[in-house]
Write a protein that binds this DNA or RNA. Sequence first.
RNA 1: GCGUCCAUAGCUUAAUGGUAAAGCUCCGCUCUGUGGCAGCGGCAAUCAGGGUUCGAUUCCCUGUGGACGCC
Length: 381
Amino acid sequence: MIEFRVVKQSKKSRARLGILKTPHGEVETPSLVPVATLAAVKAMRSDEVAATKTQILISNTYHLHLLPGEHVVKKAGGINTFMQWDRPTMTDSGGFQVFSLGFGRDFGVGKVEKFYPGKLERAIDRGDQPASLKIMEHGVKFKSPLTGEELFLGPRESIKIQEALGADIMYAFDECTPSGATRAYVASSLDRTNRWARESLAARRSKQALYGIVQGSTFRDLREASATFIAGLDFDGYGIGGDLGESKAGTKNTLDWTIPHLDPAKPRHLLGIGYIEDMELIIKGGADTFDCTVPTHFARRGIAFTSQGKLDMGKANFLKDQSPLDKKCECITCGTYTRAYISHLVRAKEITSATLITYHNLFYFNSYVEKLREKIKKGLL
RNA sequence: GCGUCCAUAGCUUAAUGGUAAAGCUCCGCUCUGUGGCAGCGGCAAUCAGGGUUCGAUUCCCUGUGGACGCC
């Protein structure tokens, strides 16, 4: 089980400082939750991740079910022991894969995207199904992208897998609705997600915490209805997910519409959002935690986040640059290596480039959130 | 020294008697609960000279450079 304590509530915004207590230690909130999809932050050892000030990780039910299978993880003693990570963990339910392997895959777009340029002839409407999976009332029939094998995931299945994985916090099974979906589609999807929320709770046998997920896309009334419904159930916290609409304004609206309806004593997690420039907005909007693949995913494409902005280390001009990624950064990468060296590694496609930049990006993101916590403490946010 | 073959983008190759296609490289952009570690876009070339022809990168000759074989 978890305990959440609000240490300070800002008077200027919905921002708050908190302590999220789990069986594997405490998380100071607001906090970024780096993504370890397959029980690993890609390119990193767990001890390296810990050194980036990362307090908690999120892994993925769908992916770990396929590879290596939850029983392997369980046999190893659960996800913490398996990956030698002694701090808190969460597992996402697989609900996002209903989108990413479904409509997202069909149209080749992410969830924040506002348009499907030239790809979407008409809005996704009630009754539409993605090409490679089937969304049914009791769950979703997937086709493994690895083996082509059919795989069924519903609330009961998801919770069962998550219990075998053994993270501190689990998520209810939901459908992350696609942008470009009509109100009718979102409304019927929400009915289903709400039903799945109840079934997820009923399926739980363990003492792991379980977060319910708010959906409703960009429709204010649906977001409010969703938040109210989820708040009425006995969840330990909340996830806010789905299509948030156009990046900044959309994220703000979604938080404004949903958070006032949730129990303020429970932690709220914003699912899958976390550009550096969005963080202040997210935290002011009232999110206690948020996960994002950007620091790790971009690192593997050679992009470093610094106080000078986003740097594409693959660019040749850095080969002459003897300074660190970020002069103001205190991470090991910045204390040890030059931009010239890192640029060379990126251009040569050396694996080490991913390690070095991922390390820095996580450290940088976590330090950034740390500063925002300071700001809340000082009453500046 | 003689013979044969070759010469197209920075690299490796394609095609054609009506000025040329691709992969890699290079340059730019995109990536938000990570199927895919990529996707999209751009720059850029017919070795040199002469001949045949309405028109030559393509056919012919010479030169230059290279590969192979023979001596």
